[in-house]
Amino acid sequence: MFAHVLSPFIANTPMDGTATAALAAAVTRAHGFGFVGGGFTWAASSTQLGSLEKGLLQARGLLGFRALPIQENDDQAIDTLPIGVGFLTFHNDDAGIPSDSPTPPSGRVALRTGRPPNAKLIKEIKSAGDSWNLKVFVQICSVHTAVEAVNDGEDVIVAQGSDAGGHQFTSNSRIIALLPEVSDTVKKLQKEVPFIAAGGIMDGRGIAAALAFGIDTSIP
C-alpha cells in the first residue's frame, strides 16, 4: 500500500486551499505521502468535488501515472495513485456518501475528521473504495476518541495535538502529552492499528520527539 514511503512515515497535512496537487506530488516524489485538501461539501453539485477531481488528474500527470479511462467500458487497470485526500467531516454527519462519492479511483482517500469519528461514514467510504484497497485515516484529539476510532474500524489514527493550526477540537492537549497516552492506550487494546502524529512538527527535532513517544514509523 505504501511501498514507496521511506521510514519514518511523513505526510503533509491536507489543508484545503494550501495542500495542492503539486505539493502532494512533491511530497510523494520525496518518498513521503502526499495529501491534497478535499474540502467539506459532498453534494452532487459540489464545486469542491470537481476541483478535487481536477487536482487528482493533475497529480497523476505529475507522478507519471496512467490517465483515467475516457470510456466507461474501459477495463484496463488503473494504477492507484499514491496520494491521499483529506476531508472535513463535521458538515456531513448525517449526509452519508452521495452516489458520486468523494472517493474517485484516481487516488487513495484518507478521511480526516474534526470531531469524534463516525462509524457509518468510515464504513461507507471504505466500501466505496474497496476495489482499490482504500485506507482510512481518522484524526483524533484524545484517548477517548482514539478508542472510538479503533472501534469504528479506521486503518490509521492521526493524533493531533493543540499545537496544530487550522481546525481545532473543542478540548485538546498538546502533542507532547497526547502522544504517549494514545500510544499506551492503543497497545492495551491489542489491535494492530498504527498511529501517526500531527501538530507542531516542522523540523527534525519534532520528528525525533514524535518517534520517542512511540509513533509508528511505517504504515502497512
Score class of each variant (00 low, 15 high):
74 D>A: 04
90 F>R: 15
51 S>I: 04
91 H>K: 13
54 K>Y: 10
65 F>H: 02
35 F>A: 07
51 S>V: 10
74 D>H: 06
58 Q>P: 09
82 P>L: 08
60 R>A: 05
88 L>Y: 11
81 L>D: 00
90 F>D: 14
55 G>N: 03
86 G>P: 02
51 S>K: 08
70 I>D: 13
54 K>T: 13
76 Q>L: 11
65 F>Y: 13
82 P>G: 02
40 F>M: 01
63 L>R: 01
62 L>P: 02
58 Q>Y: 01
87 F>M: 05
47 T>S: 11
81 L>W: 01
43 A>I: 09
47 T>D: 11
87 F>Y: 08
50 G>E: 08
54 K>G: 06
68 L>H: 08
88 L>C: 10
55 G>Q: 02
39 G>S: 10
58 Q>H: 10
77 A>N: 05
77 A>W: 05
33 F>V: 00
64 G>Q: 09
37 G>V: 07
45 S>P: 09
50 G>R: 05
45 S>Q: 12
53 E>H: 15
56 L>H: 06
64 G>P: 10
51 S>T: 10
61 G>R: 09
46 S>N: 00
35 F>Y: 11
88 L>S: 09
85 V>K: 04
82 P>R: 01
57 L>M: 12
67 A>H: 04
57 L>D: 14
53 E>T: 12
57 L>C: 11
87 F>R: 05
69 P>T: 03
74 D>T: 06
46 S>G: 02
79 D>N: 10
79 D>M: 06
74 D>Y: 02
91 H>S: 14
88 L>P: 03
93 D>P: 01
49 L>I: 11
86 G>N: 00
69 P>C: 02
71 Q>M: 14
52 L>F: 01
55 G>K: 06
37 G>F: 04
85 V>M: 02
85 V>S: 08
84 G>S: 01
83 I>P: 04
75 D>K: 13
91 H>L: 15
45 S>E: 14
63 L>H: 04
35 F>C: 04
73 N>P: 09
70 I>E: 12
58 Q>M: 13
65 F>Q: 03
87 F>L: 06
50 G>C: 00
72 E>D: 14
48 Q>I: 03
39 G>M: 07
52 L>H: 05
63 L>Y: 07
50 G>W: 05
73 N>F: 12
65 F>M: 04
92 N>M: 06
45 S>F: 07
61 G>K: 10
54 K>P: 06
57 L>E: 13
36 V>H: 04
32 G>F: 10
90 F>Y: 15
92 N>L: 08
73 N>A: 11
63 L>T: 05
66 R>A: 12
62 L>A: 03
79 D>E: 15
38 G>L: 06
77 A>H: 02
91 H>M: 15
72 E>I: 15
42 W>Q: 13
40 F>V: 04
66 R>M: 02
52 L>Y: 01
57 L>P: 00
42 W>E: 12
33 F>K: 07
47 T>G: 07
38 G>K: 01
58 Q>K: 13
35 F>K: 07
56 L>E: 07
79 D>K: 07
80 T>C: 10
75 D>A: 15
63 L>I: 09
57 L>G: 10
54 K>S: 14
55 G>Y: 02
70 I>C: 09
79 D>P: 11
36 V>L: 09
86 G>T: 06
48 Q>N: 01
